[in-house]
């Protein structure tokens, strides 16, 4: 059939063509991502102000419960900064995986109306989470800085290391996109997996020390090393190392190498997996 100038439809394109087509749609990804994050806050009187208010309220809750009432962060010099950075970064990852999982099903009408590489959808979903993370990051840094004026909280000095939050967030974003590809494919083909995601996320949350210090709790336990070097914990470490001034979280080049390694590994494996399922999306 090829010789008549007719090409077969619904066949997965070669990897190179797929990547090239995806690159050609980069403007589409950008517009889709910003539209999604805008539409999230549209039906309220305060509108886009909620992009800042929601993280601020979140931070307040964490500070009151964990920093002041429960004091879960014994052994930390500044527990509030520790928890706020942990929860904000983890929330971004958590949201990315959840929206990534639904990326095909939630956009089924788009999938069934127009042709485009479906990898656009998970990428745009995670990117839209990244755009909502940006105002949250400012709140996160602000709250961390203010926290040093609370009684019993250690100093959070202004430092050049604060700029390291940018590469830390970028690496976490790449890693989250990789995860979104993986769960996006699994859920599109077997919807049941979606019900397992919250449990996996809870495991990761407690296993990464989002609201407490793993090292402090586990000490020399053999599992401590695994929990310390698994990807989510690495990114929390990098973000905390950038902003907070904890003696237990020094700048560590090994953590940066791991951060880059995990991000690339998940991104490449996730993308290839997603591409391999391309011709199956949108049948149900």
């Amino acid at each position: 059939m090829e010789e008549n100038g007719l090409a077969r439809m619904g066949v997965r394109p070669s990897f190179r063509d797929y990547v090239r087509e995806l690159w050609r749609r980069r403007a589409f990804i950008g517009v889709l991502a910003t539209s999604k994050s805008q539409s999230r806050n549209q039906n309220s009187y305060l509108g886009q102000l909620w992009a800042v208010l929601t993280p601020l309220l979140n931070a307040t809750v964490y500070v009151i419960i964990f920093g002041i009432i429960l004091d879960t962060t014994r052994g930390m010099s500044n527990g509030i900064a520790f928890i706020v950075i942990g929860t904000f970064m983890f929330r971004f990852f958590d949201r990315s995986v959840v929206v990534g999982a639904d990326s095909i099903r939630n956009n089924l009408s788009l999938v069934r109306s127009v042709h485009f590489p479906r990898a656009v959808l998970p990428i745009a979903q995670v990117l839209s989470e990244l755009t909502t993370l940006l105002p949250a990051l400012i709140v996160m840094i602000g709250v961390s800085w203010v926290s040093q004026f609370f009684p019993g909280q250690g100093p959070v000095p202004l430092d050049w290391s604060w700029f390291l939050i940018v590469p830390a967030v970028l690496l976490l974003w790449l890693f989250s996109t990789g995860c979104a590809f993986l769960v996006g494919r699994w859920v599109a083909i077997t919807p049941d997996i979606k019900n397992l995601i919250p449990f996996a996320m809870r495991f990761l949350m407690y296993g990464s020390g989002v609201i407490f210090s793993i090292n402090h709790l586990l000490g020399d336990h053999p599992a401590a090393k695994i929990l310390e070097y698994q990807p989510v914990a690495v990114y929390l470490y990098l973000a905390r190392g950038a902003i907070a001034d904890e003696p237990t979280i020094p700048q560590d080049p090994v953590m940066w190498y791991l951060g880059v390694g995990w991000a690339l590994l998940f991104l490449v494996v996730g993308f290839v997996m997603f591409w391999r399922g391309e011709e199956r999306y949108g049948r149900d």
């Binding site: 100038g5 109306s113 127009v114 011709e279 049948r283």
Partner: peptide, 16 residues
């Protein structure tokens, strides 16, 4: 299916 938006279970669509 002819527009290539639903993958065929069997058979094929060829298009220019």
């Amino acid at each position: 299916a002819v527009a290539g938006l639903i993958p065929p279970t069997k058979g094929a669509v060829y298009v220019a």
